[in-house]
Amino acid sequence: MPPRRPRTATPSAPRNGGGLTLARLALAAVALLVLAWFIGKRPATGDAPVTRADPPAPAAAPAPQARLIRGEKSTTLADIGEARMTLQDQGTALRVEGGVGRNFASDLGALLDAAPSVRRIDITSGGGYAVTGLEAARIVRRNNLTVRVRGYCASICVALWAAAAQRQMEPDAVIGLHQRNAQCDALPSPDREECHYQDQFATEHDSSYRAWLQAAGFNQRLLDLQARTASEDIAVLTAPLLWDNGVDFSVVDRDGTRLGRAEVERLLHAAAARH
Rank of each mutant, 00 (worst) to 15 (best):
L112C: 01
L259K: 06
T146E: 09
T8F: 06
V100N: 02
S74N: 13
A26H: 10
E204F: 14
R119E: 05
G101C: 03
S189W: 05
A136H: 01
A262W: 07
G127N: 04
Q166T: 14
I39Y: 06
Q220R: 14
T75R: 14
W161I: 07
A227E: 10
R7Y: 09
Q220W: 11
N219H: 07
A230C: 00
L20T: 02
L25A: 02
L68M: 12
R221L: 07
F104L: 02
A105E: 01
V96D: 05
A66L: 09
V158R: 10
I139V: 15
F218K: 06
R167P: 00
P3L: 13
R84M: 09
T257P: 00
R274K: 11
G71E: 02
A235E: 06
T124I: 05
T146G: 06
P116H: 04
P56T: 14
R261T: 15
Q179K: 05
Q198I: 08
W243M: 05
L187R: 14
R142G: 07
S250E: 12
T21D: 09
E97M: 13
E263T: 15
L111K: 12
V96K: 10
V147A: 12
L225W: 11
T10D: 10
K41E: 07
P171N: 01
E82G: 13
A239E: 01
G256V: 11
L237I: 14
T146C: 08
P62I: 12
V30L: 10
K73A: 11
R266F: 14
P171H: 08
T8Y: 04
E135A: 12
K73P: 13
V149I: 15
A114F: 03
K73S: 06
W161M: 11
R148N: 02
I39A: 03
P116C: 07
A186W: 02
L33T: 05
E263W: 09
L68Q: 13
L145H: 02
L259W: 10
L259I: 15
H196D: 06
T76H: 09
R84P: 00
T86I: 14
C184M: 14
F249Q: 06
N144R: 12
Q183W: 13
P3D: 05
A61F: 14
L27T: 02
F38W: 12
P64D: 04
A163D: 08
Q168A: 01
L237Y: 03
H205T: 11
N16Q: 03
W212A: 03
N103E: 05
V247T: 01
T146A: 15
S208Y: 13
G17E: 02
R120W: 07
C157N: 13
A163F: 11
A48P: 00
H269G: 08
G127Q: 03
R274W: 06
T86Y: 00
T21A: 04
L22N: 05
L108Y: 00
Q168W: 01
L223P: 00
V236G: 05
G98H: 04
G151I: 10
D199V: 02
C184E: 10
P2Q: 15
L225Y: 09
Y197I: 04
M169C: 04
S155E: 10
Q220I: 03
R4N: 08
H205C: 08
